[in-house]
Write a protein that binds this DNA or RNA. Structure first.
Length: 546
RNA sequence: GCGCCCGUAGCUCAGUUGGAUAGAGUGCUUGACUACGAAUCAAGAAGUCACAGGUUCGAAUCCUGUCGGGCGCACCA
């Protein structure tokens, strides 16, 4: 529809002899009904070029547009806006489209673009906490959203199974193990403090008794790997319970063993972007906008984390992805320029890489802030939260803020089955429609698959508002995916649910008048469909009863 | 000191990539079930969009500066 209007405007301009790029103008949905269904700023944008006053120019455009049958009216308002009122017949077409497109209503056409979304990627040194949960929710919903919008999406978790943290993990477990066997040990401050370390140690003791006493460094590293594997299994399980699944688990270890890490460094060397200084090897990230150059190989010969990152991101492009999205905690924002430098050094467009930064989560319980620190071992795990408030509520709460805002997650509110809880508000809308259908069937009404022009008779403001909201869902999907802002889906569907509840309280669906009942059932069916599709993107269930 | 993010109703936050009279939820005041589910709805009050300039037909949105809050500035992972 928008395209049709756009074309009409273009034709009108051509008739008036104005040469212009039609993509310079906007075609918006005004928030105020009196400004019509669509609104354009074309007259103001091109008034200079046409050498006319905006309102005069608008009047000329309107004259040439008025005959078009898709409009019921075209008016000029304010400084020169042109407001379009669509022919009422069009609203039925919208509802028909929703019902006939079904589960794919709102979906975008294939973009022929491969997108890699890398998210969570927490080190396998401890269970996921609430902050990881937010990253998991944002990444998962973004992946679902972009998939729905027509992108070819792959989800990946990067496993940091190499490096000092695995050794530290081994030392931590080993220390707890020795403690359990009654030995005096020094439990260093940088060891992982959490209770889960004790659990792992206890399991080892249970299975193998004291046979691991007197281990050397290599054995302890092995112990660390073993513990890491076990923790990773737990992470996978927690994510599955949260409704998050990955296509790939990309191991840093394989990157190193396959020689790809070294190859990445070699490539940067051949590009002349590496230099030695003070015994270390540096990457000239400043050539691409970073604040300072970064060390890749330390003076002691050890590789930094960045060395792997170079190869990993190089590898992402080599696997054929057109767009790379990394989702990180906001405390990692200092790395954006670094990775961006790698991307540019490899000759890829800067825009093909996006780092989405997820702000902190403040967990509240009865107004009290709950502190969380992995090191201190006193934290709320994702599993605890999901077990307590449920998967749907947890996922929805993470979508209630855009990701670069801090998020207050109130456990009591998420748990409460009250009107204060927006999850239920939206789900209730779906359940209500299902309930209407149940009653309808019992009372002998047919749930219409389609509807004839003559039978359609809805024109109340409450009904038209719902239809307009349905109408913009495809645009919402498109722009939310484009902006990589999955929270917009949550806000959209909340608004749709709100319009439905208002309608429900004012109008009765199962009325005697056959056409009215049929029309309303057809409309309400479309609402259920759109809500279901949104909840699907959010990874939240659409209950038929609550 | 430098860089990034944020500052919108008492509180928690949206704001369609620059549009028209800035919107929700919550809290407060007051109403609506003998009608498809009251986990719902309706009405009222609540604002110098942190502040000051600039860009233009038009700014919460873009640019500069100031103030306030968070985070980051490793040859750590």
């Amino acid at each position: 529809m928008k395209d049709l209007v756009r074309k009409s405007i273009q034709n009108a301009l051509a008739k008036l002899g104005v040469e212009c790029g039609i993509d310079k103008i906007t075609l918006d949905h005004p928030k105020n009904d009196k400004f019509g269904d669509l609104s354009t700023n074309v007259a103001m944008v091109f008034s200079k070029q046409a050498r006319k006053k905006p309102r005069d120019f608008a009047a000329e455009i309107v004259e040439t547009l008025k005959g078009d049958s898709i409009f019921s009216d075209v008016r000029i308002a304010g400084p020169g806006f042109i407001n379009f009122f669509l022919n009422e017949k069009y609203w039925l077409d919208v509802v028909r489209a929703v019902n006939s497109e079904g589960d794919s209503f709102g979906a975008g056409a294939t973009k022929n673009k491969k997108v890699l979304v890398e998210f969570v990627s927490a080190n396998p040194t401890g269970p996921l906490h609430i902050g990881h949960g937010r990253g998991a929710a944002v990444g998962d919903v973004l992946a679902r959203l972009m998939d729905f919008a027509g992108y070819d999406v792959t989800r990946e978790y990067y496993v940091n199974d190499v490096g000092n943290q695995i050794r530290t993990l081994g030392n931590s477990v080993y220390a707890r193990y020795k403690e359990l066997l009654g030995e005096e040990v020094e439990f260093k401050e940088n060891y992982y403090q959490g209770e889960y370390i004790k659990d792992i140690a206890a399991k080892i003791k249970e299975n193998d008794g004291d046979k691991y006493l007197n281990q050397n460094d290599d054995d302890i590293l092995k112990l660390g790997r073993q513990a890491g594997d076990e923790i990773l299994e737990g992470i996978k399980q927690d994510l599955i319970e949260f409704g998050v699944e990955f296509d790939n688990w990309y191991s840093e270890g394989t990157l190193v063993e396959s020689g790809k890490r070294d190859a990445g460094i070699e490539e940067m060397k051949s590009l002349g972007l590496m230099y030695e200084s003070e015994g270390a090897l540096w990457f000239k990230t400043t050539e691409f906008g970073d604040e300072k150059d970064r060390v890749v190989i330390k003076a002691d010969g050890a590789m930094t984390y960045f060395a792997s990152d170079i190869a990993y991101h190089k590898e992402k492009y080599e696997r054929g992805f057109d767009e790379i999205i990394d989702i990180w905690g906001a405390d990692h924002h200092g790395y954006v320029a670094r990775i961006s430098a790698v991307v540019q050094a490899l000759g890829h467009k800067k825009e093909s890489f996006t780092a989405l930064l997820i702000q902190l989560v403040h967990l509240l319980r009865g107004g009290e802030k709950v502190s969380m620190s992995t090191r201190a071992g006193k934290f709320e795990t994702l599993k605890d939260v999901v077990d307590e408030v449920g998967r749907d509520a947890a996922r929805y709460f993470f979508m209630m803020r855009k990701s670069d805002s801090h998020l207050n997650f109130d456990l009591e509110l998420a748990k409460s089955q009250s009107s204060e809880n927006p999850v239920y508000y939206v789900q209730y809308c779906h359940a209500r429609v299902c309930s209407i259908f149940k009653n309808a069937t019992e009372q002998g009404y047919e749930i219409p698959e389609k509807i004839d022009d003559g039978a359609w008779c809805l024109d109340s403001p409450e009904e038209i508002k719902i239809i307009k909201q349905l109408w913009i869902m495809p645009e919402m999907v498109e722009s939310a995916a484009n902006a990589k802002e999955p929270h917009r889906v949550a806000f959209y569907v909340y608004e749709l649910a709100s319009l439905f509840h208002t309608f429900y309280n004012k109008h009765r669906v199962l009325v005697e008048d056959e056409n009215v009942a049929r029309s309303r059932l057809f409309l309400v069916r479309a609402v259920r469909q759109a809500v279901k599709n949104c909840l699907n993107i959010l990874g939240i269930t659409a209950p038929t009863e609550m």
